[in-house]
């Protein structure tokens, strides 16, 4: 199907993607529990808020156990794209999209998929730390299991493992009963990472996870990203060029000009994007001449 056909479909609402989340059919066996990292493949992704197109024809492969960085100036659609990757885009009123996203070959927008199940397999860490303030640190980590009615006899092990991976265990091992809101900003963000890792996602999406944090916390989180990358595919949106270079294997440069929809200018190995960019616009951006 061409992109144009896709667009008309969305605009006329005939196969409005939002309908898919309410499908009652049983979910296909998307992934087997315990299987780690998966490849995410976005094909011809378009996005709209109301009538305004904000993202145009984005193709991107996010490889298994690699860290993919999405860079580009503000308002170029990076975050929108990220939210399309785990069906968070569709919860915004008036938002619609076209194209497809495959998780190890299965379309996450297939009408037989439950959006909630998809989100469990493709976790997300947000720009602002958002632990559940009325839950203890322990309950925050276990929240995903609770939400998905996963019973486990090894809760303590799950908590320790997730918090260790997120680089928080040594700081909170004696404070597991404290409220999530009582931690510092950097700790809260690592708690959110632990919370996302506890349900063993195949992909972890991170939307500028360090933009609200101090340099020390940022460093800790970057270490965490590098450590978890061997078992979960990571996609990270960042405004920080050094951060992209430090943590990612692959970089995609997004751009939108004069209020037009955002698109990908260039994709490649991170070292190539920063050292040998093919497109002059990429060169200008990574060398700090605009954005």
């Amino acid at each position: 199907m061409t992109n144009e056909e896709n667009m008309t479909e969305v605009l006329t609402g005939e196969t409005d993607r939002r309908v898919a989340s309410s499908a009652t059919a049983s979910p296909t066996s998307l992934r087997v529990d315990g299987v780690t990292a998966a490849e995410l493949h976005a094909k011809g992704v378009h996005a709209w808020f109301g009538e305004r197109m904000v993202l145009e024809n984005v193709d991107l492969v996010m490889e298994r156990t690699k860290v993919t960085a999405l860079i580009g100036p503000s308002g170029c659609g990076k975050s929108t794209f990220l939210r399309i990757l785990n069906r968070m885009h569709e919860i915004v009123p008036g938002a619609s999209l076209a194209g497809s996203v495959d998780l190890d070959g299965e379309d996450i927008y297939d009408p037989n998929q439950r959006a909630a199940t998809i989100r469990r397999h493709i976790g997300m860490v947000f720009q602002r730390p958002n632990p559940f303030p009325a839950m203890s640190v322990r309950d925050n980590v276990l929240a995903g299991l609770r939400f998905n009615r996963i019973k486990s006899k090894h809760k303590d092990e799950i908590i320790e493992e997730a918090l260790t991976k997120a680089g928080l265990w040594s700081e909170v091992r004696d404070r597991l009963k404290d409220m999530g809101g009582a931690l510092s900003g950097g700790q809260q963000q690592r708690l959110c990472i632990a919370r996302a890792l506890a349900v063993k996602p195949a992909v972890l999406l991170m939307d500028e996870p360090c933009s609200a944090l101090d340099p020390g916390s940022t460093l800790r989180i970057e270490q965490t990203v590098k450590e978890i990358a061997h078992e979960v595919t990571v996609v990270i949106v960042t405004h920080n060029m050094q951060q992209a270079q430090r943590v990612s294997d692959k970089t995609a440069f997004f751009l939108s000009q004069d209020g037009n929809p955002g698109y990908i200018v260039e994709t490649g190995k991170t070292e190539d994007i920063f050292a040998r960019p093919q497109d002059p616009r990429t060169a200008d951006y990574v060398q700090g001449r605009f954005g």
């Binding site: 785990n86 968070m88 199940t117 947000f126 958002n130 559940f132 303030p133 929240a143 939400f147």
Partner: peptide, 13 residues
């Protein structure tokens, strides 16, 4: 909305 989205991103119905 942060808490709401946090829960949804963990697979909460």
């Amino acid at each position: 909305s942060g808490e709401r989205e946090g829960a949804m991103s963990l697979g909460a119905s």
